[in-house]
Structure formats: C-alpha cells, structure tokens
Design a binder for these strands. Structure first.
Length: 553
RNA sequence: ACGGUUGUAGCUCAAUGGAUAGAGCAACAGUUUCCUAAACUGUAGGUUGUAGGUUCGAGUCCUAUCAUCCGUGCCA
C-alpha cells in the first residue's frame, strides 16, 4: 500500500478508536474517509458524526466537536480540522505529506498501481467466444475491449487471471458454414448450386471456396462424407485463424482456446446429461429430452436433446462450465452480449444442479452497439454478410481509439458508434488527450536530459508546493485505489475516467508552471521528479486499457 | 403481456447514499517572444423522464408510471 493510502487508513483507525471511546456504536460501524469534490471542503472528510447522531442520541455537530478534540494532528500530517455543514469533519492536510508519493512511484516504476488485493485467487474470464463462421464485428469489438481491459485490471489488482475463448466448433452453425462453403465451391465449378436457406453469404465464404478450388480443382465435385469433412475443417480453421489474427491485432490475447468439439471427444457432454439425469432432473417429452431447470429458478424447462436427436446449444455449454469449475477457478466471469442475457438463468440452473457452485459464475452483460453511418442506423447481419468488421474498424479508426472509446463507456448502457465521427474527427477522440499528455511529458524529460538535468529522488520535496502540483500528486496517489475499485466492481470505464482526470490535472499544471528553469535548478529537478511520477502513472493506467503511451506525437 | 438494461446540459457521456450534479463536443470570450496550442483559462447552458416513498441527506435505494433497447426458440 502506498504512503498516502496507508496514511488514510491510519487516520481511519485513529477515528475508529476515538469513536469507540465515545460510547457503544456496534461492531459493524464503518468509518468512511472520503475525498471531497470541492477543495474548500478539505483534503479528506468524514461523515461519521452524522452517522453517529442516531446511535449516540447527540447532535452531529456536538459529536464532531468531541471527535475533533481528540485527534492527534501532528502524527497524521494534519494542518487543521474544520466542522462544516450538517456535521462533516474536514481535514486540511499539511500538503508536504503528498510529496512522499513521488519517490515511491519512481522507485516502483511499472509496478506502481499493482496490489495484492486479490490474493491471487483464480479468476477465469470468458469473452468474445464468437462462432468461427465469419468476421468479428462491432459488438464483438466492444466485448473484446471490455473483457480484455477487465483482465488487465484484475491482474493489476492481484488476481490470477485466465483469459478464455470458447469455440463453438461442433454445432449447427458449423454445418451451415460447411454447406455454404460447398455451395460456393460448386458454383465455382459452374454448377447451379443454391446456398442453404440461412447460409452465410459473406465474401469470406467465397474466399474459402476459391482456396479450396485452387487446391482441389474439381476433385470434390460430387457429394461425399470425405468432402464434407475436409471442407468443414478447412473452413473452420480459416475462420478461426482470421479471428485469432484480428484479436491479436486488436491487442487481445487469450490464454486458453477451448473447443466444444473436444468436450464431445472427451465424452464430457454425455456425462453432463447423465449426471443431470441421475439427480432426477431430466425427463422425456414430445420426443425430446428436457432439463427441469424450473426447479432451479428458471422460467421454463429447457430442451437438452431435440427430437431430431441433436443437442441444443445449452447442453455442451453446461459441460463446458462444469469443466471450467473442475479446473479449480474461484470465479468464472462470462462477458456476454445483451442479446444473450435471457440465456443466463438456464445455464446457472444447470450449474447449480450439478455442482451447487452457480454463485461462482458471474455474468457481465454488455449492451448493444448501434452502428451509425451517414446519420442513420446501419443494420448488420452475419448471414447476409452485411457487417462492419473489426478489421475494417482497425484499418479506419485505429486500435487505440477504438479500445479507448469502448472502454470509456459503462458496459450497461447501450451506445451508438458513429463511424463517420470516429474516422473524420478522430483528433477529438479522448485517447489523444491522454496520449498527448504522455508525449508532452516525454518531451520535457528529453529536453531536461539534454541540459543535463535529472529528476531527484528525495524523501521530501520542499519546492513542490503549488495547488496545481498538489492536484497532480493527489491524483497520482489515488491510482492503486482506483484499480481495486475498477476490478471489484468490474467497471473498466473507471480507469478511462481516471486517465482523463490525470491528463487533465497535468495539462493544467503544465500551463501554469515551467518545469525546466535555468534560474532555479533546485526546483527544476524536483518538478522533474513530479513529471516523471506522472509519466509512470499515466503509462501504467493506459496499459490497463491496452492503449499505447507514445513518446512523441 | 412478462423479465432485464437504460433515461442526467443542444449532442456523447461521468458522478463511493453526501456539501454548489461534472467533463468532452457544439456556442461565446481570452491565452503562444516561454518545456509540444492535439493544450490552458473563463462565460453560457439542468425541475437528473414523471409521481410518490425510505433518511440527517437520493441522480444513486424502494414502489408506481412513461419512454428506450434486449430477451421470453426443440436458434446460436
């Protein structure tokens, strides 16, 4: 824990002791020490006098006075304390304490922001998991950005994170992909083959067919089991490779690629059905096999095996989640699009039935993204092939801008993505604001170096003493706490807000004060340390979003 | 019809149950003999969808209602 944060904790402990001497307040009374928005209200503030009013049957202001009398100001770097409004106790710190953060940040470097908060508990985050039947599109881009940022944040907060992608490479959609490919292939052989009813009509299928044609020519003109298998495997691999490449270019890497098919090969799917059956929650009706999910809170019972003997999407997915639990994770987080949120209760029902561990599964719902083009909604459809792919986005807008844009928004509000705005007015993109701050800092450090000026690592900085520089220091000191907050609440956008705030206080500082000043070398080398600490914090926080911190712009 | 999300400045969005609800864009007025003006400073802009309730205190929690999007397949 950094010195500023531990000082806050120390003050809290101090308050706790004082309060417990005032009377019986109960063991679950929590002392809250917050940072007021308005600087006039102090560096820290506590509302505990108001909270205690009812318990102690005294007026908040009287309680506040009792508390304030007993606070040891010297030990905690407190300059003065005021009681304000209905009973807030406001602490005005001796700001010299803030400069202690500078040396700490510089010493920690890339490690600044990391904590052991998560105790290395094992978290599995499953995200994207798009079927290998076509390109990733806008919605996947949002899920990928949120999922990946969340993983980076959890990792920073001390969790042991596994990033996982579930490949649906066994079901109906693969059959559809294969039949679509075969149809395109036959069309290349000048046959009058029709696409399947709900086939995939994108350009990628034509590309696959052409590749197959250049390898096999007319060898597979006639229908055969061999043709089906070869075409299926080829198409599947082609699509999957493309997805992997696009994600890698989007700065998203996975630890584990799980295959649905391998669940069948290991007989895990049948075993899941058997286990549900043994527990007595499976029955036959209308030629299908049903799971009695209503016993576990679902709206209606669900089909596991259809009357045509094929399985529903749910069945292998149950086996998959049991498999994940058996791999020893303390927490499973699924990042899902809002269009799938109705699916969650049945999955949880099955997990609860089989393991009693459904509480370990947490689903993060990402709301829909509407694509706006030429001022109106642009409807996308994978089947028709009409879509804006993640590849198009990367080429047109750039990875940093897209990732930052998606990470900025709370994931539970639906949003519009205006392509024209994103491409044309890309200079207005907030990511540049932060990147510019970083580039600016690097420029200062470069020029200082040319003048043989280097930042100083001191225990206390007497020359860092302006309001603007205190604002920067306070912001820097918050960072580890913000990371923990973003991790536990699963809100990556807290980090982008933080980045924006940090860039803002720095820009403001920059415009008010000259860092490199030949006439005051002592001050310069101290301010350089502040600048260096800002650079480290900015870079580390941007890394959590997965965007670059350029040294020049 | 039922279940879930969202509703905050002209637009896009923030805001740990706290004090005078904040940013960016758009509008207006300023700042460069000086480390990057992709920046900074200021002005203007609000009945937090509506109506109740909970409490010392509500944009935040509860109820109702309206609007919005998503879902309610033997699709995935």
């Amino acid at each position: 824990m950094n010195k500023i944060l531990s000082l806050q904790e120390d003050i809290k402990d101090h308050l706790r002791k004082i309060i417990s001497n005032l009377g019986e307040v109960g063991s679950n009374f929590k002392v809250i020490l917050e940072e007021p928005k308005e600087i006039e209200n102090g560096d820290y503030s506590t509302n505990c006098a108001m909270q205690l009013a009812k318990i102690l049957k005294m007026s908040p202001r009287n309680i506040a006075e009792e508390i304030v009398k007993k606070i040891d100001k010297e030990v905690y770097y407190i300059e003065r304390i005021e009681i304000a409004g209905p009973g807030f106790i406001n602490f005005y710190m001796n700001n010299n304490y803030l400069t202690k953060i500078v040396k700490e940040v510089i010493t920690l470097g890339n490690e600044y922001g990391k904590t052991t908060y998560g105790n290395m508990s094992k978290v599995n985050v499953e995200f994207v998991s798009a079927n290998p039947t076509g390109d990733l599109h806008l919605g996947h881009a949002r899920g990928a950005a949120i999922g990946d940022c969340l993983c980076r944040i959890l990792d920073c907060a001390g969790y042991n994170v596994t990033r996982e992608y579930y490949i649906n490479d066994a079901g109906n959609q693969i059959k559809n992909l294969t039949l679509s490919t075969i149809a395109r292939y036959e069309q290349l052989l000048k046959k009058d083959s029709k696409m399947p009813e709900d086939g995939y009509r994108g350009q990628d299928i034509i590309d696959i067919a052409q590749k197959l044609f250049s390898i096999y020519k007319n060898k597979y003109e006639l229908n055969s089991e061999e043709r089906y298998q070869i075409f299926r495997d080829f198409a599947k691999q082609y699509e999957l490779d493309k997805i992997k490449q696009d994600l890698a270019d989007y700065n998203v890497l996975f630890d584990v690629w799980s295959s649905e098919n391998s669940l069948y090969e290991q007989n895990k799917v049948n075993r899941a059905i058997d286990k549900l059956s043994q527990k007595g929650y499976v029955y036959e009706s209308e030629g299908a096999t049903w799971f009695k999910s209503t016993e576990f809170g679902d709206d209606k019972d669900r089909v596991l095996r259809k009357s045509d003997n094929s399985l529903t999407y749910l069945t292998p997915d149950i086996a998959y989640h049991i498999d994940k639990l058996e791999r020893g994770f303390d927490k499973l987080i699924n990042v899902l699009g809002a269009d799938h949120h109705g699916y969650v209760p049945r999955l949880k029902a099955a997990i609860e039935c089989l393991s009693g561990d459904s509480g370990k599964l947490e689903v993060l719902i990402i709301q829909m993204v509407r694509l706006i083009k030429n001022g109106e909604e642009y409807k996308m459809s994978k089947r028709s092939g009409k879509a804006l792919t993640i590849r198009d986005l990367i080429d047109e807008v750039g990875v940093d801008a897209i990732r930052y844009f998606f990470a900025m928004r709370s994931c539970d509000s639906q949003m519009d993505f205006d392509v024209d705005l994103a491409t044309k007015k890309s200079n207005d993109n907030p990511v540049y604001y932060a990147q510019y701050a970083h580039a600016r800092i690097c420029s200062i450090l470069r020029q200082a170096e040319e003048k043989k000026l280097y930042y100083a690592k001191l225990d206390s900085y007497q020359n860092i003493n302006s309001e603007k520089s205190y604002a920067v220091l306070k912001k820097i000191a918050e960072f580890p706490k913000i990371v923990i907050d973003a991790a536990t609440k699963r809100i990556p956008h807290r980090i982008t807000n933080y980045i924006n705030d940090l860039a803002s206080v720095f820009h403001s500082f920059y415009n008010a004060e000259k860092v490199i000043n030949k006439d005051n070398i002592d001050k310069s080398i101290e301010l350089l340390a502040l600048v260096k600490a800002t650079q480290i914090t900015l870079k580390n926080s941007m890394a959590l979003i997965g965007v670059n911190a350029p040294e020049k712009m």
